[in-house]
Computed example of a mutant assay.
Amino acid sequence: MSSAPAPRWTLLVHGGAGILTRDTVSAQTDAAARAGLDAALAAGEAVLSSGGTALDAVEVAVQVLEDDPTFNSGRGAVFTFDGAIELDAAIMDGATRAAGAVAGVTRTRHPVSLARAVMEHSPHVLLAGKGADIFATEQAVEQVNPDWFVTPERRAQLDKMKANPDGWFDVDMKYGTVGAVAVDTAGHVAAATSTGGVTGKRWGRVGDSPLIGAGTHADDRACAVSATGAGEFFIRIGVAHEISARIRFANEDLQTAADAVLAETQALGGTGGVIVAGPDGDVAWSFTTPGMYRGRAGSDGTRRVAIYGEEG
Rank of each mutant, 00 (worst) to 15 (best):
G270N: 00
G18W: 07
G207M: 08
D170R: 03
W148Q: 13
V189K: 10
Q255S: 14
E252Y: 15
N164R: 09
A214C: 10
T199R: 11
V78C: 15
E242T: 15
I247P: 08
R221F: 00
N164Q: 14
T265D: 03
A98G: 13
R109V: 01
A39D: 15
E138L: 14
Q255V: 01
H121C: 14
T177R: 01
N72I: 07
D184W: 02
G187T: 05
T193C: 09
M119V: 04
V13G: 03
D67H: 08
T288I: 01
A277K: 09
G238R: 04
R97T: 14
A191H: 01
L48K: 07
E120N: 12
F249C: 08
F149E: 01
M173I: 13
V239G: 11
I19G: 11
R296L: 11
P5K: 05
K201W: 02
L158W: 00
I134T: 15
V60Q: 08
E45I: 08
T302C: 00
Q28F: 12
P123A: 09
T216P: 02
Q255Y: 04
G104Q: 06
F71K: 01
N145V: 12
S209V: 06
A115Q: 02
V178Y: 10
A257F: 08
G281T: 01
A32I: 14
D82K: 10
V225E: 03
D208R: 03
F169P: 11
V25P: 08
I91R: 03
V305M: 12
V261G: 07
F249W: 12
Y175D: 14
A182E: 06
I91A: 07
G187W: 05
G238I: 00
I235G: 09
G44L: 10
N251S: 14
L55I: 15
G231S: 08
T137C: 10
R236I: 06
A46R: 15
A245M: 12
T137K: 14
T21P: 09
D220T: 12
P69Q: 06
W285V: 11
A35N: 14
A191P: 02
A218P: 04
V78G: 12
A190L: 03
G197M: 09
F135A: 12
T29L: 15
E142Y: 05
T151A: 04
A277M: 05
G278I: 00
S73N: 10
T108N: 10
